[in-house]
Simulated assay, not measured.
Amino acid sequence: MTIENFWVQVNEPMLRQGDYLPGCLVPVFSPNFAENSDIQEVQVDEFDLIIVTQSCDLENKKARLVAMTPIYPVSEFEKINPAFAKKGRWNEVLKGRVEGLHLLASPTNPEDNRKALVVDFREIYSLPYDYLVKHATELGRRWRLKSPYLEHFSQAFARFFMRVGLPSSIPPFK
């Protein structure tokens, strides 16, 4: 079975929703971080991220900070979350039955589901627009989700945030 590629390569400074930006530096504040101190050290971690901010907001420079979520190869995600290495677990994610996770085909090998990428909507980072433009420019060629995979990705992100937990529900039918 031939799988259409979800991605297109771009080489431009313009940012869009669905841009895959590997190697982004993200500040991580310790619980002891205090605003009253003179100088403080802030840990910086490196993440591969994908943009979730709407393209129109980026294009019209309405977002000083860009919302992004981590994106991992399946094998790397399984190392951090061993429960996902169990047989059948990825099929649940693929069907949209695992809150906060979304699967995207590999940009380089879409037929191999073991090379797929996992987006984790449960973690969101906001990074400065100007930093990301500079980073994207330094990357040169990078991957960007193409339609309709971009819209599907955006819809999955929206579904995660529009959930409503009710204190009770209608009893099951018997």
Results as ranks from 00 to 15, higher is better:
83 A>D: 13
6 F>D: 12
140 G>M: 08
91 N>D: 15
53 T>G: 04
9 Q>C: 03
20 Y>R: 10
154 S>K: 14
111 E>D: 13
5 N>M: 02
36 N>I: 12
109 N>W: 02
59 E>R: 15
17 Q>W: 05
107 P>Q: 06
72 Y>F: 14
36 N>K: 13
98 V>S: 04
41 E>N: 13
57 D>A: 10
23 G>F: 04
64 R>A: 12
78 E>M: 13
17 Q>N: 09
121 F>Y: 13
48 D>K: 09
37 S>P: 04
137 T>I: 05
35 E>R: 09
148 P>F: 08
19 D>F: 05
4 E>C: 03
65 L>Y: 13
65 L>S: 07
69 T>Y: 02
102 H>A: 05
73 P>H: 09
152 H>P: 00
106 S>M: 01
165 G>M: 06
30 S>H: 10
167 P>V: 00
57 D>R: 11
2 T>N: 12
125 Y>E: 04
105 A>R: 12
138 E>S: 08
129 Y>H: 14
47 F>H: 15
98 V>I: 14
100 G>A: 09
42 V>M: 13
51 I>V: 15
75 S>A: 12
85 A>S: 13
101 L>T: 06
136 A>M: 02
46 E>K: 12
149 Y>N: 08
158 A>S: 11
82 P>C: 10
126 S>C: 10
40 Q>S: 14
73 P>N: 04
54 Q>I: 04
69 T>Q: 09
143 W>N: 14
94 L>T: 07
153 F>H: 12
119 V>W: 00
74 V>I: 12
97 R>T: 02
170 I>Q: 04
156 A>P: 05
49 L>S: 07
